[in-house]
Design a protein around this nucleic acid. Structure first.
Length: 471
RNA sequence: GGUCCCAUCGUCUAGCGGUUAGGACACCGGCCUCUCACGCCGGUAACCGGGGUUCGAGUCCCCGUGGGAUCACCA
C-alpha cells in the first residue's frame, strides 16, 4: 500500500478558525494513524489579501494544538516557475487557450446565461480563436463539452457532475499569475499528495480539479469532503458567533487536548466514546467514520470536555499551565510547591484554566474581600463563640496538618455542641471571602497558620463591629 | 435561479432490515456531603412529511419539504 500523504493548505488571510483547525486535525490524524506524511502549504497566491501576521497566527495555533507537520511549510508565492511550466504544457497540448474577453463582455454572458436557464457561465467565445497568450489575456482550461466526471468521495460517496455544466475556468490571470484551482492541483501533484481531506465548500471545485489531473496526466488522489462547522444559528461559523479563532480558546483557558478531542468528535465518531487522549485519537481515527452532515459548534460541550481533560492531566502539568493565568491576575505564583497544592484542590471544580485561576485568588490575595451575600449570611454574632474557640486552638496547634486540623474542629464541635456545617461555613467565608470553596481542612492546611489566624481575626473584628452597630 | 450535498432528542452522535431507538452535553430530581464541585442513581426529550420495496423499515428506493454549499482574473 502506498504511503498516505496528506496536507493542510490554508490561505493566510486571517487567523486559524475552528473549522480550519478541524480540517488540519483530520488530515494530521489520518497521516499519523497510517504512519504517513502530513504537509503544510500556505496558499498565498492572493497577494492582496495574504499577510505575514496571518501566516504566523496559523503556525501559532497549530503549534498550540500540537499539530506538527513533516514537510513544509511551502509557499505558493515562491513556486511560480512550477505553475508556469504546467501552463505551458497545457497550452502546448491544446488543453488550454488564451482569452481576451473583457470584464463587461463576461458580465453580459453571465446575465444572458442567467436569463436563459439560470446558469451563469462563460460561453467559450475564445475557445477556438487560437489567440496567442500575451500580456493582458487570461488562460482558460478547455473543459470537455460532453461527459460526466464522477467524484468518488471518501465521506459522501460518489458525486456526479456533467462536464457541460462546468465553465472553461481561468487558470492564469491577465498578469499571468495562476489561480487557485490550478495551483492546488499542480502542487498536490508535485508534492505527491494522495489524500485530500478538506471542507465540503470545495466539492464544486473538485470536478474541475479532477479534469486538471487528467490533463496533466497524473493519478487522482483520494478525496474526502468534510461537512461544515456551523454556529448556533445554523449558519456558517463566523466572528459574530463569538470566539472562532483557535488561539482565543487558548486564552480562555481551554486545553489543546480538549480542543482537539472536541473538534474530532464534531463530525467524527467512534461508537459511544466521548473522551479521547491525543494518542487514542491517532489510534482510532479513520476517514470512513467521518459523518456526512454539518455540525453546530457547541461551547458547552467543549467546556465539559475541557473539565474532563483538566481532571485527566497530571497536577504538575496543570500547575505549569495555570501559572500564566495566575500571573495575569497580578499574583506572584512563582512558588511551585505552593501552586501545586493549590491546583490540586481546584482540579475537580474547574472548567477552564481561567476559571481555576479565578478560584485560586483567595490563596494568593493578601487580604480577603468578603462577598456581601456570604458575609451577610455567615459572618454573624452566633459564629463568634465557635470562631474564637477555634482561633485559640489553632494558635496553640503544634502539628499543622489536615488530620490535626480536623481534630481541632472536632474539639470545637464537642465543646459547643455544634455541627461541622455551623462552624465550617463562617470559617470558609473568613478565609476565602466566599461561601463556596475547596474543603475547609485542606484550605487551612495550605494557607498556613499565619494567614489563617490573620483572616480569622479580621472576620472576628468584622462580626464584632457589625454586632456593635446593631446594638 | 442552475448544480451539488445533507436530514435520529435543543446540541454532538450510536444505529449499517427485526432494538423497550443507545450514549454524551445541557436541563430537572435524588444520593453523597463542611460549602461548591467531583462521583453515583433516576427523569424529560428524537427517527422532517408522503409514497413505495419487504413478512417486517430510523435503516433500501422515489417525491416533497427544510437546511447548507457553490456559481470570480478569492482561496
Amino acid at each position: 500500500m502506498e504511503k498516505v500523504r496528506t496536507r493542510f493548505a490554508p490561505s493566510p488571510t486571517g487567523y486559524l478558525h475552528v473549522g480550519g483547525a478541524r480540517t488540519a486535525l483530520f488530515n494530521w490524524l489520518w497521516a499519523r494513524h497510517t504512519g504517513g506524511v502530513f504537509i503544510l502549504r500556505i496558499e498565498d497566491t492572493d497577494v492582496a489579501r495574504s499577510t505575514q501576521e496571518s501566516t504566523d497566527a496559523i503556525f501559532e495555533a497549530m503549534e498550540w494544538l500540537g499539530i506538527d507537520w513533516d514537510e513544509g511549510p511551502f509557499y505558493q508565492s515562491r513556486r511560480g516557475n512550477l505553475y508556469r511550466e504546467a501552463m505551458d504544457r497545457l497550452l502546448a497540448a491544446g488543453k488550454a487557450y488564451a482569452c481576451d474577453c473583457s470584464a463587461e463582455a463576461l458580465e453580459k454572458m453571465r446575465e444572458r446565461g442567467m436569463a436563459l436557464d439560470g446558469r451563469p457561465r462563460y460561453d467559450g467565445t475564445c475557445r477556438e480563436k487560437g489567440l496567442e497568450w500575451t500580456e493582458g489575456t487570461v488562460l482558460r482550461f478547455k473543459v470537455p463539452r460532453i461527459g460526466v466526471t464522477v467524484l468518488p468521495d471518501q465521506v459522501k460517496g460518489d458525486i456526479a457532475f456533467q462536464n457541460a455544466d462546468l465553465d472553461d475556468f481561468i487558470i492564469a490571470r491577465s498578469d499571468r499569475s495562476p489561480t487557485y484551482n490550478f495551483t492546488v492541483v499542480v502542487d498536490d501533484i508535485d508534492m505527491g499528495v494522495n489524500t485530500i481531506i478538506r471542507g465540503d465548500d470545495h466539492v464544486m471545485n473538485t470536478p474541475k480539479q479532477m479534469l486538471l489531473y487528467q490533463a496533466l496526466e497524473s493519478p487522482l488522489p483520494a478525496f474526502g469532503h468534510v461537512p461544515m462547522v456551523l454556529g448556533p444559528d445554523r449558519t456558517r461559523l463566523s466572528k459574530r458567533h463569538g470566539a472562532t479563532s483557535v488561539t482565543a480558546f487558548r486564552d480562555m483557558g481551554y486545553l489543546p487536548e480538549a480542543m482537539i478531542n472536541y473538534l474530532a468528535r464534531l463530525g467524527w465518531s467512534h461508537g459511544d466514546q466521548e473522551f479521547f487522549t491525543r494518542d487514542e485519537l491517532i489510534e482510532k481515527f479513520t476517514v470512513e467514520r467521518i459523518g456526512k452532515s454539518a455540525g453546530i459548534f457547541d461551547m458547552e460541550k467543549l467546556t465539559s470536555l475541557n473539565a474532563d481533560h483538566i481532571m485527566a492531566t497530571p497536577v504538575e502539568d496543570l500547575g505549569a499551565r495555570v501559572e500564566p493565568f495566575l500571573t495575569g491576575l497580578g499574583f506572584d505564583a512563582s512558588d511551585t510547591d505552593y501552586r501545586l497544592r493549590v491546583v490540586e484542590t481546584l482540579v475537580p471544580r474547574s472548567k477552564t484554566l481561567v476559571d481555576m485561576a479565578a478560584q485560586a485568588a483567595f490563596y494568593y490575595e493578601e487580604d480577603v474581600v468578603f462577598e456581601e451575600q456570604a458575609a451577610k449570611k455567615f459572618l454573624r454574632p452566633v459564629a463568634l463563640e465557635p470562631a474564637r474557640l477555634l482561633l485559640s486552638k489553632l494558635e496553640a496547634l503544634q502539628d499543622w496538618k489536615e488530620r490535626a486540623l480536623e481534630g481541632v474542629f472536632q474539639a470545637v464541635m464537642d465543646e459547643t455542641g455544634l455541627k461541622l456545617g455551623k462552624i465550617a461555613q463562617p470559617v470558609r467565608v473568613a478565609l476565602t471571602g466566599r461561601s463556596a470553596s475547596p474543603g475547609i481542612f485542606e484550605i487551612i492546611d495550605i494557607l498556613g497558620r499565619e494567614k489563617t489566624v490573620l483572616r480569622l481575626k479580621k472576620a472576628l473584628a468584622f462580626i464584632e463591629a457589625r454586632a456593635a452597630k446593631a446594638d
